[in-house]
Simulated scan of single mutants.
Amino acid sequence: MAANTILVIEDDPRIQKALHRQFTTEGYEVHLAGDGEQGLASCKSLKPAGVVLDLMLPTMSGLEVCKGIKKWSPTMPVVVLSAVSEVADKVLLLEMGADDYVTKPFSPRELMARVQAAIRRAQRPAVNDRVTFGNIAADFSGMEVFKDGESVSLTAHEIKLLQYFVENPERVITREELLNDVWHYTSYPTTRTVDNHVMKLRQKLEPDPAKPIYFRTLHGIGYKFVRGD
Rank of each mutant, 00 (worst) to 15 (best):
G134R: 03
E110H: 03
M143Y: 13
T103P: 02
F133N: 06
Q116H: 04
N135M: 06
V131T: 14
R120W: 06
V115T: 08
P169M: 08
R121D: 02
Q123W: 03
Q163H: 11
L111F: 08
V127R: 12
V102P: 03
M143F: 14
A137M: 11
Y164E: 03
Y101N: 01
T103Y: 06
V131A: 14
R114Y: 06
N135F: 06
V115P: 06
E144W: 13
N128Q: 14
E170H: 13
A126Y: 09
E167G: 04
N128C: 14
L111I: 07
Y101Q: 00
R124A: 05
R109H: 13
E150P: 10
A137N: 04
E110F: 09
P105F: 12
E158T: 11
Q123A: 02
L154K: 11
G134P: 05
S141W: 11
A122N: 02
F146E: 06
A118M: 05
H157M: 15
L161H: 01
G134N: 02
A117R: 01
F106C: 11
P125A: 08
K147D: 03
V152C: 04
A122V: 04
R109G: 12
A122F: 00
V166W: 12
L111A: 08
I119W: 07
Q163V: 02
N135A: 05
N135I: 07
L111E: 00
V131H: 12
V166R: 00
E167R: 01
A156F: 10
I159M: 13
E110L: 04
L111P: 02
M112V: 05
V131E: 13
Y164P: 00
A117D: 04
E167T: 09
F106P: 03
L154F: 01
F165M: 11
V145Q: 04
P105E: 06
T103K: 04
S141Y: 13
A118P: 01
